[in-house]
């Protein structure tokens, strides 16, 4: 039966915010898997590294699909409570989070963990734990953003969200320092692990740093979205 309706109900479209939160969740999932894969890498358990790499890749793929559907369903005619360009600009760094997680996992499959000194292993696990903390904080921030949108930018929710942004940035700053320290350590053990080992490990550390970088960058974009 055709609907005998004149009112343009099509003006009420699905909110792009729900898939946005979903996408953030996928990003978090991918990053949280990194702790296991770093552990397996340190244990030189190549089978497990390969398996986890596949899992992270699958999560990244799902995140990609969500990102695509968000973009597809956001034509220029869409009126959002935030600037549409800001919204899309925000989606980009958030999408780089699972991308980086996938890259890290991929790097770990390239070469098995040649006898790494135990304190390097410890530092690797430590920096991943901190990265996961950033992501936890980031996910909390996204929950807060969902409340900001739901309450049409109620002042107290906006303030809480702004505090959440700073929290993410704070942890990210700490990770930057950890990464630099770890990098120095890696270069100092060239004789033990060889130049290729140094290269491989420093690539991994660089990529790990990117995860929280992107989270902080996305958080900073939220500041732009909230300020209007």
């Amino acid at each position: 039966m055709r609907r005998f309706i004149r009112f343009p109900v099509d003006m009420f479209v699905k909110s792009p915010f729900k898939p946005l939160y979903e996408h953030a969740k996928k990003a978090g999932e991918a990053v949280k898997k990194l702790e296991e894969i770093v552990q397996a890498f340190c244990d030189a358990d190549t089978d497990r590294v390969d398996k986890l790499c596949g899992e992270i890749s699958a999560i990244e793929h799902k995140a990609d699909k969500i990102k695509q559907s968000i973009r597809e369903n956001l034509p220029p005619s869409m009126l959002l409570p935030v600037n549409r360009q800001d919204f899309l600009a925000f989606l980009k760094p958030q999408d780089s989070i699972p991308d980086s997680a996938e890259d890290i996992a991929g790097l770990m499959t390239l070469r098995s963990s040649y006898n790494l000194p135990p304190d390097i292993k410890e530092d690797l696990i430590q920096i991943i734990k901190e990265t996961i903390k950033t992501i936890d904080e980031y996910e909390k921030l996204m929950d807060e953003i969902s409340r900001v949108i739901k309450t049409s930018f109620r002042t107290d929710e906006v303030e809480k969200a702004l505090a959440g942004i700073s929290a993410v940035e704070q942890i990210e700053h700490g990770i930057d320092k950890m990464g630099l320290k770890l990098g120095r350590k890696i270069f100092s053990i060239e004789e033990e692990i060889g130049a290729v080992g140094v290269y491989h490990l420093s690539e991994i550390v660089k990529k790990i740093g990117e995860v929280s970088d992107y989270a902080a960058r996305a958080a900073d974009m939220l500041r732009v979205m909230l300020s209007k």
Partner: peptide, 15 residues
């Protein structure tokens, strides 16, 4: 929607 009261409105409707 302009007052940020709605999560998404398709302005195509104006056309």
């Amino acid at each position: 929607g302009l007052a940020r009261g709605l999560e998404a409105v398709n302005l195509n409707v104006i056309r």
